[in-house]
Each structure stands twice: as structure tokens, then as C-alpha cells.
Design a protein around this nucleic acid. Structure first.
Lengths: 98, 98
DNA sequence: CCCGCATATGCGCAAATGCGCATAAAGGGA
DNA sequence: TCCCTTTATGCGCATTTGCGCATATGCGGG
């Protein structure tokens, strides 16, 4: 049952989205698509995938849909996610100033 | 740089192969293909993928090629792998007798 | 009630992925 | 040297995946 989770996070945009959500707060689709430079339909579908994998939950707030990490994730899965996020902590575009 | 690792393990056969290798010992391709009920070319290619991701190393031993987990894996990556294996510990086909 | 913003979704397409088949390559033994 | 076993790889095919475009849907404001 860990496979669906791996399939969900083994995609650049989804992994980045997960990183953004890792701050614990809520983010609407429009915010995510801006920050990740993705089109609207693309972002929406990726978030749907993450949701189906049980990694995130969404909440309707007026015309927005706010996504956040699923706090009810299975402990085992949570451990995997944390390990993945920790592994990619200071990488990619993140150019630390010093 | 964690993405390639995720792509490598987000596939049923490769994940199962990794589980088999998780015992720390060496396993040749023919053994893996038998245990995972895969054809030879399929197994060979999947192991190649795992190798490219830096998760396993191979060693030629006569006509066999022995695969084992890469002990020189980056610590961060190792943590992810361990978490994944722990998450799927007692699942799948593994029917515990009791 | 109509409009505008945010999000979801049907559709078709192009690229990527996994597979089997056949064949090559590597190595040991008679 | 020939043969058998084990593993790798070229090739074509079917499926899956990610994408954009257009459109539908949800929701608040005027």
C-alpha cells in the first residue's frame, strides 16, 4: 500500500507542491500554480492525484480550494514523506545565500 | 536529487526487488526473476534502473551477476529507502501464517 | 440575474514507460 | 572449440502519463 504514495510523489510538480505544503499551512491552487509556474488545469490535476494518495486534504473556502498536508496520514506513510522532504531539503533551485 | 530515487522505487517489481535485497545479502538476477515471477529481460532492465538510481550495486561472479543494496548510499536517501521498506513491511502477498 | 474569479474536468495528443521476443555477449565446462 | 547457462540489449508494441485547450462548475458581488 505504499506504492500509490510513491507513485504520487515521483513527479516533479507534485513533489514541489508537497514541499510548499510542508510548512503546515494552507495553500490555494492559484498560489501553488504561481509558485510552481504551472498552468491551472495541470496544477489542479496534480493536487487531485496527491489527494487520492491520501497525502493532502482540501477545503473549500469561498471560491478557493485550500490544500494542506493530511495530518491523519498513516504513521508509516508520514515517516516516508518526512524522509523524502528532508532528503530534498536544501537542493534544487534553492540557492542558499550563505 | 531525490526524484530519481523516487522514480526508481515507484514501480511494483523494482520495489519488491528492493525488498528482497533488503536482507543485506547478494541475489543474482535469476533468483530475483524466479521469486518475483518476472521474465529475464524484464528483471534485468529493472535492476539496471535501480542501479542507475544508485540504490543497488552489481558484481560479476562467473556467469552470474550478484546484486546487493548499495551500502554507500547517501544517508538521506538511505533514510528514505528504510522508511519505505518499513512502511510496506508486513503487506502485499506476505501472508503471515500467524 | 448576470458577471467574474477560482477550480475541476472532458478530450485529444505526444511522450514516456513497461513489456515480450529475439538476439548478442560473457563466462564456465567438456 | 562447441555448447550451455546467465545476463544484457535492440526492437516494436500497447499502455500509461502528463499536458494544453476548451468548457463546465462553484461561489461571491453588484
Amino acid at each position: 500500500m505504499i506504492l500509490p504514495v510513491l507513485l504520487a510523489i515521483a513527479e516533479p510538480t507534485r513533489l514541489q507542491a508537497l514541499r510548499l505544503l510542508a510548512d503546515g499551512s494552507e495553500h490555494c491552487v492559484c498560489e501553488l500554480m504561481c509558485k510552481l509556474d504551472a498552468t491551472q488545469s495541470r496544477m489542479s490535476r496534480h493536487m487531485q492525484t496527491l489527494k487520492q494518495a491520501g497525502l493532502v486534504v482540501d477545503r473549500r473556502d469561498a471560491q478557493w480550494v485550500r490544500y494542506r498536508l493530511n495530518s491523519d496520514m498513516a504513521p508509516d506513510v508520514r515517516t516516508v514523506i518526512d524522509a523524502v522532504l528532508a532528503a530534498g531539503a536544501g537542493e534544487a533551485d534553492e540557492r542558499k545565500v550563505a
